[in-house]
């Protein structure tokens, strides 16, 4: 029964994907760190309720592109972004846009689990508190519980919400960070190699989670693992030396890529 409904959801999502609605549109995006150019006129569109994987060898600019999507590059000294990126219809680099609001709409999960040195509850409640999403304590409790459930962590931590978030295992910490991001109810979640610091079992859990989150969120994930990209994503973009080499359906990308460089990278000939 459950299986059936999941398959139904899957089908519905795939149908929606065929309609193609773009959540974020990047046009001629270039990034400079001081004098060094890190991205060359990247044109990449992110589809709604889709997992888009960014792959490519180290230093190819995939993380840089990811961080332009919620302007996390702003925190780096000497970083400059040109081009145009829109979220729905808003230009996110428009000076009129509030970067704080943007980051509430485009959440981020980092490479290394980085829970705050606070209790599990406070970690999840952090975002809702600063954005004033909860009107009462009960409201906040509900948001925390819902977010932890979405992150698949509720059953493991419901009895110790007041204990430190840093005391959890690595995999649990990363799911806590995902819960923290989900709690703000973002529209897009960016994930920067979320599993690179985790063991295979924790990785499997996080991948499963990404799969489920797709129903409610648009996800962009940077990964070094080709298998992971193939497992979790529907669209894949391949970066090389700051250029977007190819963007395609994941299935096609891993069976019959258009570009020779993608073929080489996937076959392990470089990178």
């Amino acid at each position: 029964m459950n299986m059936m409904s999941e398959a139904a959801v899957e089908k519905a999502l795939d149908k929606k994907m065929n309609d193609i609605s773009y959540k974020m549109i990047g046009k001629d995006v270039s990034v400079y760190y001081g004098d060094k150019r890190a991205l060359y006129d990247v044109n990449l569109n992110v589809r709604e309720n889709t997992v888009t994987a960014l792959i490519g060898p180290s230093g190819c600019g995939k993380s840089t592109f990811l961080r332009t999507l919620n302007r996390m590059n702003d925190t780096i000294d000497g970083c400059r972004v040109t081009g145009r990126i829109t979220l729905d219809t808003d230009d996110i680099y428009d000076p009129a846009i509030d970067v704080v609001e943007l980051r509430a709409r485009v959440g981020m999960v980092f490479q290394k689990p980085n829970p705050f040195p606070k209790s599990i509850y406070e970690n999840v409640a952090y975002g809702p508190r600063i954005h004033g999403l909860a009107k009462s304590k009960a409201d906040l409790d509900a948001i925390v519980e819902r977010s932890l459930q979405k992150a698949g962590l509720w059953n493991e931590v419901k009895d110790r919400l007041q204990e430190g978030g840093t005391g959890l295992s690595g995999g649990q910490q990363q799911r806590l960070c995902i819960a923290r991001a989900v709690a703000v109810s973002p529209e897009v979640i960016l994930m920067d190699e979320p599993c690179s610091a985790l063991d295979p079992i924790a990785t499997a859990k996080v991948e499963e989670l990404i799969h489920e989150l797709r129903a409610n969120f648009t996800i962009v994930i940077v990964t070094h693992s080709m298998q992971q990209a193939a497992r979790v994503s529907q669209r894949t973009a391949m970066f090389h030396l700051g250029n977007l080499v190819e963007e395609n359906d994941t299935d096609k990308m891993f069976t019959n890529p258009d570009d020779q460089r993608t073929q080489d990278y996937i076959m392990g000939r470089f990178g």
């Binding site: 919620n70 996390m72 925190t75 704080v100 609001e101 943007l102 980051r103 509430a104 959440g107 981020m108 980092f110 290394k112 980085n114 829970p115 705050f116 040195p117 952090y126 975002g127 600063i130 954005h131 960070c177 923290r180 991001a181 703000v184």
Partner: peptide, 21 residues
Amino acid sequence: RALRDGSLGLGATRSETIKRV
């Protein structure tokens, strides 16, 4: 730095990040 990024990435302002994290 990860803690700063984590907080900023959730849409906290700099001063909120400093005060709360």
